[in-house]
Amino acid sequence: MQIDLSHKTALVTGATGELGRVIAYTLAQCGADIIIHYHQNEAKAGKLKQQIEELGRKTIAVQADVAELDSVLRMKESVLEAGFSSPDIVVANAVSQYTWTSVLEQDSSDYVDQFNSCVLQAVHLSKVFVPAMIERQTGRIVAINTECAMQNFPTQSAYVAGKRGMDGVYRVLAKEIGEHQITVNQVAPGWTISEKDRLNHTERSESYESTVPLKRRGTDQEIANVVAFLASDLSSFITGAYIPVAGGNVMASI
């Protein structure tokens, strides 16, 4: 049994990021054509596009601000004009970076920023791409959440607020569109080893690893593998799930 995404088109937002690149490439390895979304890094989008084309997959790189509905609508228009179908799979991976600090010191604009990049991204992607899934009576939405949403550690407040708000949108969405055989799930990585860590030799963190039952950090590929599973027909009866991929560092309770 293999994950087969042949004849599927997948949109990956934030596809030029450390995790996004691996997710997009992994879905392409499974046979999907890829819509590479980027916000600012056109060069990395171009490099990823070339790598995916070398796999024999059809791909396009499209710029958009996922926090703006009009921008997401323009992204869809660009995709359709390029001869792609509306995506069968939407991976909501884009994230906004900011400086973490205490609630008392965090600038209010950081909470707005995280609301825009987490909650509004979920809303906009749904409004723009779910109608075509409903018409086809099938589809997969996979959102990237975080173990932080369960940990609630000091300095995480803006990030946690955004991701918890996103969680609420996707759980409601799963119930609203489930009758159309569209699944909506979330993958929650722990502190993940990325290509940047490999280049800088910063893969290890004994203090973090000591809290993880598997006693190591997970890899970007391990996260991408779960995304690929949830994007496939193998996960056809899973929806509304928040799935930690964190080595047991957080465990969703019953």
Score class of each variant (00 low, 15 high):
K49G: 06
E209V: 11
F115Q: 01
L199Y: 11
L120A: 00
A32Q: 04
T59H: 01
I89S: 07
S108F: 14
M1C: 04
D197M: 15
L199K: 15
Q2T: 15
Y98F: 15
S6V: 07
P154F: 13
K163C: 10
C148P: 00
R171F: 14
A174C: 06
E18S: 13
A132G: 02
I223R: 08
V95M: 10
D110R: 01
Q106D: 11
G240Q: 10
V184E: 02
E147R: 09
E135K: 12
D197K: 09
A132Q: 12
S71V: 08
S210H: 05
Q186D: 04
E206P: 00
K47M: 14
Q121S: 13
Y208F: 12
I52Y: 02
Y98M: 13
A174R: 03
T219S: 15
Y208L: 14
V62C: 07
Y98I: 13
N200L: 15
V212L: 10
A92K: 11
V142T: 02
V172K: 01
Q221N: 11
N225E: 15
S86N: 05
A122R: 06
H37T: 04
L69A: 08
N185Q: 08
V187K: 07
Q29A: 07
T146D: 13
T138M: 09
P189K: 09
Q63Y: 01
I89H: 08
G31A: 07
T99V: 15
I223M: 14
T16K: 04
S126N: 07
S235Y: 01
K163L: 12
S194G: 02
V22N: 03
S210M: 12
S235W: 00
F153M: 15
A161I: 07
R164P: 02
P87R: 04
V169Q: 08
V187T: 12
V250R: 04
G165L: 08
S194C: 01
Y159T: 09
A161E: 06
Q186T: 09
P131S: 07
A143Q: 06
Q137W: 06
L125I: 08
D110I: 13
D107Y: 00
P244H: 00
E77R: 05
K58R: 10
F129Q: 10
M75Q: 03
L120C: 03
L230I: 14
C30N: 12
G20N: 10
R57C: 09
T239M: 10
E18K: 13
A94R: 01
M75A: 03
V187H: 04
F84T: 09
Y242I: 12
K8D: 06
D107S: 05
L173E: 06
T211H: 13
D107L: 11
A32R: 02
S108Y: 11
Q221H: 13
G248I: 14
N152D: 05
R57T: 07
Q40G: 01
T202G: 07
V130M: 06
I144F: 05
A231V: 11
A188K: 09
R21D: 09
Y159E: 06
V212Q: 08
V172M: 12
I177H: 03
R217M: 13
